[in-house]
């Protein structure tokens, strides 16, 4: 078997060569530099860095805020994507355009704006009975803001792909909205939902610019992983910074891999099969779809 399947279209080697050289220069070389640098680290030192309590606390905080934020943003994003695709209403065009703004707004500005909005003197912060800014909740809100476009943009084309006739068919067969959601939309949207979830999770784990403003940055308490990298770098601790960076990279890759595996396994018909098997609707209806 040859490396490339024969094709009459020219330009393969040129295109591949260019792509590979460019990828090597831009993406691979810096990453290799990181790995090479990490190779110099002595085992004892690695152990000392990895068993540090501060690192553990930062990892825990980063993971759980990113997870909750990614989960909520998947739900909020699904709602927005659904409404944007299915309905025309006053302001829908504006909403569709503006969804992407967090993408272009520097994260530092987002951080400053959210902090002035949610701190104790802010417009929303003074209305709420509990503290938002300078708590993990504030971190989650910042993460939701920066990752919302990812989820909405991932889900939109999939929702567009679900024909309206399916819903109508379900309704004409006597299904209610909940059944429609559970048996028709949920299985169809689940893979894209997972993609959006994992994208925003990966992005959230590494988010820095917006968080430093809205978090209190207290070590062991509200210090996130990227801040730990910056703090180690500022103390000339390249080794520590490298180890933490590799840790972030590994965690987010492991996460993406896990999601990929789940996606390969959980296809819409499998979900339906599970749903039918366990009959969550059996209490309400005799014949699930």
């Amino acid at each position: 078997m040859s490396f490339v399947k024969q094709s009459v279209i020219p330009g393969f080697w040129f295109g591949l060569g260019y792509s590979l050289i460019w990828l090597t220069l831009i993406v691979l070389m810096p990453l290799i530099a990181l790995v090479l640098y990490a190779c110099h680290i002595h085992y004892d030192e690695l152990w000392r860095i990895l068993t540090n309590r501060e690192l553990f606390c930062a990892l825990k905080l980063s993971l759980y805020t990113a997870f909750i934020a990614a989960f909520s943003v998947s739900i909020l994003g699904s709602l927005l994507a659904w409404v944007l695709v299915r309905y025309r209403f006053p302001g829908s065009k504006l909403m569709d355009v503006m969804i992407d703004l967090p993408f272009a707004l520097p994260t530092a500005v987002a951080g400053i704006a959210l902090t002035s909005l949610y701190d104790q003197n802010g417009f929303l912060g003074s209305l709420l009975p509990f503290k938002v800014a300078y708590t993990p909740l504030g971190i989650m809100i910042a993460l939701i803001f920066v990752t919302l476009p990812f989820v909405v943009r991932t889900l939109q084309p999939i929702i567009k792909g679900i024909p309206k006739s399916i819903e109508e068919a379900a309704f004409s067969l006597g299904a209610n909205s909940f059944q429609l959601f559970l048996y028709v939309l949920f299985p169809a949207l689940f893979p894209a939902w997972l993609t959006g979830f994992s994208l925003s999770m990966a992005r959230s784990l590494g988010e820095y610019g917006s968080i430093v403003f809205i978090s209190a940055n207290i070590p062991y308490k509200t210090e996130i992983l990227p801040l730990l990298i910056v703090s180690k770098l500022d103390q000339f601790d390249y080794v520590g910074a490298t180890v933490v960076s590799i840790l972030i990279l590994l965690v987010s890759f492991a996460f993406l891999l896990l999601i990929n595996l789940i996606q390969n396994y959980v296809k819409p018909n499998r979900i339906l099969w599970i749903l039918n098997r366990f009959h969550p609707m059996a209490l309400f209806t005799k014949d699930p779809l």
């Binding site: 810096p30 990453l31 530099a33 990181l34 640098y37 994260t107 994208l199 990966a202 992005r203 784990l205 590494g206 988010e207 820095y208 610019g209 990227p226 990298i229 910056v230 770098l233 390249y238 910074a241 490298t242 960076s245 972030i248 990279l249 987010s252 890759f253 993406l256």
Partner: peptide, 14 residues
Amino acid sequence: FSISPIVVGLIYTL
């Protein structure tokens, strides 16, 4: 897509 901006800065610094 999935690399933290801070890590990007770090790897170029290294």
